[in-house]
Design a protein around this nucleic acid. Structure first.
Lengths: 192, 192
DNA sequence: ACATATAATGAACGCATGTTCATGTGAACA
DNA sequence: TGTTCACATGAACATGCGTTCATTATATGT
């Protein structure tokens, strides 16, 4: 019978870690549970990862890169900026549901410098994507003039709120459509 | 020399707990640190609170009630709904900065039923406040017609995003003004 | 069959933390 | 001075978790 290769084992650990961390967040996740889920021993985990934080950092990088790539791929051919913004929002919501414990986790500063950097770079890329959408919208005249950077930050803030709402109450949530509608149109009545 | 009364001790524990939980969140907070901060022994904490969760629940209730009351007081005399919304947002931001570890904490479901209920009731009250603002705006014709409940939920989501942004990067943040501007006006160019 | 390298095991260790409890302390009153 | 009561202490206990390491199992090459 063939044993697993090192690569296969490592992958199954990452997959298991993604699952457990997503459900429980960092503090509540134990190496023992990840090991069980991956079908390996406790010590086995430490063959492939230096420690818990290392495992978490690896998985975070892997997941965020995957997310960024998919998002770019999804919106790259969209000409209408409103469509792109909608797709961007929908994409965020979908991933948030699946990996809620990870995308927003209690990443305390102490001892997590590595993760913080990964996250910051991720959010920077996200902001860049939105900024491009907004710029396109402004150039084509569809969006009004505004501070692009600020608007992008606010939208990212809105999306974080989305995700956080999921953590508190995973059922009752407004849809991507409702959200993008308010972002696009605002609350104030338009003249005429 | 006069010793502290039971009431005084209890209060100083709550104050200490507010401080430590705000900074570190639930998991990272230890009873030992709360006790030290309160100037009491470890065992002393257990005279006044059943356990860690009980202490947390008490402090959460106390803090959220205080916040709701102050918010109501602040906006109750404002006639312009846009002003009220702005004040509401500013209020949230202010408290979030101070109590970030608590207002948004990793309140996992397991074993935290009591806290979850407190939080849900709090958010319900918050939503009610925003709904009233929006309704006022619609009645006066300043806001356009929309689904009040949904709009309120979206705004709450936006605020949660605000707070979460604070956790990740406490310096670079858009202002309350930027935020309410986008909420009120949206991104799309207005006709004419 | 034997040797070697690779992959895996899980009991054991050290440490941190929530919680308890027998004991101590000081003020008020007899 | 002695008694009582409320308030407080902190060492000790139990548990859980991250981490290590001496040992075992399996495949591969000779």
């Amino acid at each position: 019978m063939n044993r697993r290769t090192a690569e296969e084992s490592k992958e199954s650990i990452i997959e298991a870690a993604v699952k457990v961390f997503s459900e429980k967040g960092y503090s509540q996740t134990t190496i023992r549970e990840v090991a069980r889920e991956a079908g390996i021993s406790v010590g086995g985990v430490y063959i492939y990862f230096k420690n818990k934080e290392g495992l978490y950092a690896t998985l975070l990088k892997y997941l965020l890169k995957d997310f960024t790539d998919r998002t770019k791929e999804t919106i790259k051919d969209m000409s209408d900026p409103a469509d792109a913004l909608y797709a961007f929002i929908a994409m965020n919501l979908k991933y948030a549901r699946r990996y809620k414990g990870i995308i927003i986790t209690e990443g305390r500063d102490r001892g997590f410098k590595s993760c913080l950097d990964v996250k910051k770079r991720f959010f920077k890329k996200q902001r860049k994507l939105i900024e491009d959408i907004i710029k396109t919208g402004m150039t084509s005249g569809k969006f009004k003039e505004c501070n692009v950077k600020t608007a992008a930050m606010v939208i990212i803030g809105i999306l974080r709120g989305f995700v956080f709402s999921l953590l508190i109450d995973s059922t009752a949530l407004y849809s991507s459509g409702d959200c993008s509608n308010i972002i696009l149109n605002g609350l104030l009545r338009r003249k005429e």
